[in-house]
Computed example of a mutant assay.
Amino acid sequence: MADTYKFRIDHHGGLVRPPEVLAAREKHAAGELGAAELREVERLAVVDAVALQRKLRLSVVTDGEYRRADFRSAVLDAVSGFRRTGGTVDGMERWVADGDPEALRPLVADDTVELAGLTVIAAKATLPAPSYLAAQCFEAGTGPASARELGEALAAIVREEIEQLVARGIRYVQLTNPDYARDLDAAADAGRTALSFEDALAVDALAVGLASKPDDVRIGLCPAWTAPAEVDRTAAERLYAAVPVDRWILPYTTGSAGETALLAGVPVERDVCLGIVDATVPGLEDIDAIMARMDVVADLKDIEDVAVSPDRSFSSVAGAAALTADQQRRKLIHVETVARMCWGNEL
């Protein structure tokens, strides 16, 4: 399936937050800056981010997730039924569900449509997968009766948001659940603590299972930021078959056996976006080594159904980026260079 709507020079959405945004958010949290003033600081930063992405000739733009504390915040900031615990999980503030989730406002649709008004390049919306939030936020004895029930409620909210995004002209949506890496690991301990693999698949399938959508809409899912050393091929086949997304967004920074197995398992009718540079390491990867890996990709997959990107967000948590803004820019230029070497100007 040659993809007419390629979005070939991609990234995961989160960008290094500018110092002025971080400072404004701190002042707002301390009651020293109003909501309108914070919004204006963020808006101006988004305008600059769009200008940077256009200058780098990316094929998608995001708002850098500048308005979010972390990549889950699109949901947690806009949906009732959650509370902070004061603890942390995966380096982020831990929230638990203590009621039935209900969307209080659009999750990202308003922001993404505003973003789309700044550029003719496709605006990309990024959301946490509902399975990820359900596994993280379920706590027995409070809120929904099970993690599956919580996940299904969140999936309905996310599906409605995707439908709203599509109706308002947004053509590319990415969901992320890095926890699938454990399910795909042949050496990992079996089972999950809150949400089983099968339940996670059902939840995410519900979220992306739109009754219909335009041919030029792409819904992607990132199931891992790092590939396991040995992939459970049965689990990978189950994942790819159960969740009906258009694009699988996979790590491919080393060409390891695990990365190659994840790529090889993607069904022929789906396209892939490969994370060819490491968003956590400042140094630039050897371009010849990347192109050698892309030769392997061409043997496994129709190269017309492939896109390239960094392997993960540059800043999944505000203020916790591994790279500087300039290092980030250089990484994005590296991705663009590889895309030009692979596809010329047919982007």
Rank of each mutant, 00 (worst) to 15 (best):
V89M: 13
E42S: 05
L221W: 10
I333A: 11
E42K: 05
A205C: 05
Y132D: 10
E32I: 04
F7E: 09
T260K: 10
E336W: 11
E346V: 13
V21R: 06
D302V: 08
V308Y: 08
R68M: 08
S196E: 02
T62Y: 02
I290L: 11
V166M: 02
P282G: 01
Y240H: 09
T4K: 15
G141S: 01
A298G: 14
R57T: 10
V113L: 09
E269M: 06
A97P: 07
S212I: 03
R159V: 11
Q327D: 14
V61T: 12
I290N: 03
K124I: 00
L33I: 02
G255N: 01
G91Y: 00
C273N: 13
V297N: 03
A125H: 10
V335R: 04
E149Y: 05
P282A: 02
V296C: 12
R43K: 11
A257P: 01
V217F: 07
L165M: 07
I276L: 00
R270N: 15
Y180T: 03
E32D: 13
G209K: 07
A181Y: 01
E139Q: 15
A116Q: 13
E149D: 12
S146M: 03
R330G: 03
S131M: 04
E102D: 07
M291P: 06
L300Q: 02
V277H: 04
P101L: 03
E20R: 12
P101K: 07
V41G: 06
D232K: 12
V335A: 05
R83F: 02
L154M: 08
P18N: 05
A140W: 10
D110G: 09
L38W: 00
S313L: 12
R148S: 10
L133I: 14
S59N: 15
L104V: 09
A129T: 01
R67G: 06
L274I: 04
V46Y: 06
G34C: 04
D63K: 03
L201N: 07
R68A: 01
L38T: 00
A264D: 12
T88I: 11
C342Q: 12
A202D: 15
V166I: 15
S59G: 02
